[in-house]
């Protein structure tokens, strides 16, 4: 299971002086990023890659993997997705990237029915690895949810040949 311990803390971890009620921590609110893959290893590795590339001398936005099924197999778990989204939610929205088939469909089903994910959660239409890097870099730079979504989606336009 990935819980709060499985996320990178970044800005939130430095915001402890903001007071117990968090009321004056608005500037430290960062978009969270959730990476949903059929494979736990893929989700965790891409999270590590994105956080590593985003950490250019500062704190990084919270990012959590939600990979595989709850029992460790290949597939998708709505529980892992909900837990990851709750873990990275800092009140500025959560951007979710998904890889294939059931990962995409599960996130869409959860969003369509409501109640399982933080209020401002969005499925971002982006390539999984490149989009994750763009999303975490943008969120770490303080971008809002729309900026994070746009940066991740723009990763589709980068041609390799």
């Amino acid at each position: 299971m990935y819980g709060r311990d499985g996320t990178t803390q970044g800005r939130d971890a430095t915001a402890g002086a903001g007071g117990p009620d968090g009321a004056d921590r608005t500037d430290d609110r960062t978009v969270g990023v959730v990476l949903v893959s059929h494979s736990a290893a893929v989700a965790a590795s891409v999270a590590e890659l994105a956080a590593g590339l985003a950490a250019g001398g500062g704190a990084t936005a919270p990012v959590a993997p939600a990979g595989g099924t709850a029992d460790g197999g290949l597939g998708t778990s709505s529980e892992l997705i909900a837990a990851a989204a709750a873990a990275v939610d800092r009140g500025a929205g959560v951007a979710v990237l998904a890889d294939l088939g059931s990962a995409v469909l599960t996130v869409k089903a959860l969003l369509a029915e409501g109640g399982d994910l933080p209020g401002d959660t969005r499925l971002v239409d982006a390539p999984f690895v490149e989009g994750a890097v763009a999303a975490v870099v943008t969120a770490s730079a303080g971008g809002d949810l729309a900026a994070v979504e746009a940066a991740a989606a723009q990763a589709y336009t980068y041609r390799k040949v």
Partner: peptide, 10 residues
């Protein structure tokens, strides 16, 4: 949705 694990769940 929460227990199937494949695309047929959602």
């Amino acid at each position: 949705i929460s227990t199937v694990g494949g695309a047929s769940g959602p």
